[in-house]
Design a protein around this nucleic acid. Structure first.
Lengths: 250, 250
DNA sequence: ACAAAAGTGTTGAACTTACACCCATGA
DNA sequence: TCATGGGTGTAAGTTCAACACTTTTGT
């Protein structure tokens, strides 16, 4: 089995290629069925789920390592990726409990700091690719996460918190929604991220008045009710808003 | 000379006590004479100034290490300290140029990531204490920084950027100003941090209407002009605002 | 008396908030 | 025809932005 060999080699020789003691934790957010999702991996042998992550190559820039890690897991290009926090406060990081026997006394058993990056991706475009450390990689609802390995619940919380603050300063959505989307979709996306009800009539006024979205003249036929109109982001205004920042009051 | 021995021991044996490859960079902000200041150290032998920093002890939590580092440099307690970014993208971090001969081939010559924390401190209360790596530690105007060692100019910029965004969500000032301060003082503090003119009449209205500051009935006699009134922060409202966040539109 | 900086209030414009009924669709 | 969810406008209240003259103080 290829990955078996790969894993053994990584445990034995990984520290030649990678910086020891430092990982990147990726919080990959997607949006589907009116739910904010996060991608979690089933870690081999550890009997639990955690954030996908990766090590930084010895001569690799940090942001490049983060990009590479997310790309490997999602098979996506053109990522929206943001560093949000560095972790080294969890007690598990300073005490050697719960070290799996297969890595005891290897470089992987040393205290590890991690740098958190979150990615916003288009759910439907992602093909999850578990790496040799994972035996699965799947989407979970952010609202109903199980208890995760390590301090990964804290990491997800912090990512959400940053995403929330970000939402007030930058437009969000281009990377999470399909090219064309309905008002109810983006409305409930914002509600989900902010965890607060937003007025159904006032919300689109705001986005329209900022020029962030515009009406296509199409509709999407779904279900036994009126067909919602489709909107797209106004690429130019969106980019400007991303660069210069906005103050969103909603 | 004590520090000489200390330095040699640190170079030789430091990696037993400290995590190698990871430092904390401290951006210590103060405010004096209507100028935002940052504390910089003159690094021994490197012929330049840089941010004071420190290593993390092997079993020490990251945030504790940051606190310890700033405390050592400023002799202050009760710090306002915030982690803002992790650095590992600068090319100097991946290539071994500019390694000082005295640390060549030691643990200090390895690639180092750093985690940036900024502190807000009361200028007049600080007694700068250079450690054994520094031969000076002084305040510099943020507006006119020289070229710093490593990527520290980037680190300061990023800290400022975060401080600026923070200002819109949390009250700032309690840690930078003296207990009693004048409106012109806090006004110009905000102008300096945001790098933008704020209306002299509207600005205090905002802080007063949020209940963040209150009038003492004292004045401060300075110079040959009308004496400005003294204000203090309303501790209770300030704390609430810190915890719950505000949306400041100024 | 003069220079320098501090104090103070109002008004029009813009934005935010709250709110309820009709419409289109598929079963 | 009915159930479901989508679409739409207005008025009242609040907040923001712009603006200039008077006061105090020390020299």
């Amino acid at each position: 089995m290829k990955t078996e060999t790969e894993l053994k080699d990584f445990i034995k020789n990984g520290s030649r290629m990678y910086v020891p003691g430092l990982t990147i934790d990726c919080v990959i957010f997607g949006y589907h069925d009116r739910q904010l999702k996060v991608m979690l991996g089933g870690y081999k042998g550890l009997g639990g789920f955690g954030l996908p992550g990766g090590y930084v190559k010895r001569t690799e820039l940090l942001s490049i390592a983060a990009e590479r890690t997310v790309k490997e897991k999602t098979s996506l290009d053109n990522l929206y990726l943001e560093q949000f926090y560095a972790f080294g406060d969890s007690p598990f990081r300073t005490t050697k409990v719960n070290i799996h026997p297969s890595i005891a006394n290897t470089w992987l058993a040393e205290r590890t700091f991690s740098i958190g990056y979150y990615a916003l991706v288009e759910f439907s475009k992602v093909s999850p690719e578990p790496d040799f450390l994972l035996d699965s990689l799947e989407w979970f609802d952010v609202a109903t996460l199980p208890t995760l390995l390590f301090d990964h619940n804290d990491v997800v919380s912090k990512a959400l918190e940053h995403l929330r603050i970000n939402l007030y300063h930058k437009p969000i959505g281009y990377n999470l929604l399909e090219k064309k989307f309905t008002l109810p979709e983006i409305h409930s996306l914002y509600e989900t991220i902010l965890d607060k009800k937003l007025d159904r009539r006032n919300f689109p006024k705001k986005l329209l008045s900022l020029g962030l979205i515009k009406d296509t003249n199409e509709v999407r036929k779904i279900g036994q009710h009126r067909s919602p109109r489709l909107y797209t982001f106004d690429k130019k205004n969106y980019q400007t808003a991303l660069k210069e920042g906005i103050v969103l009051v909603i």
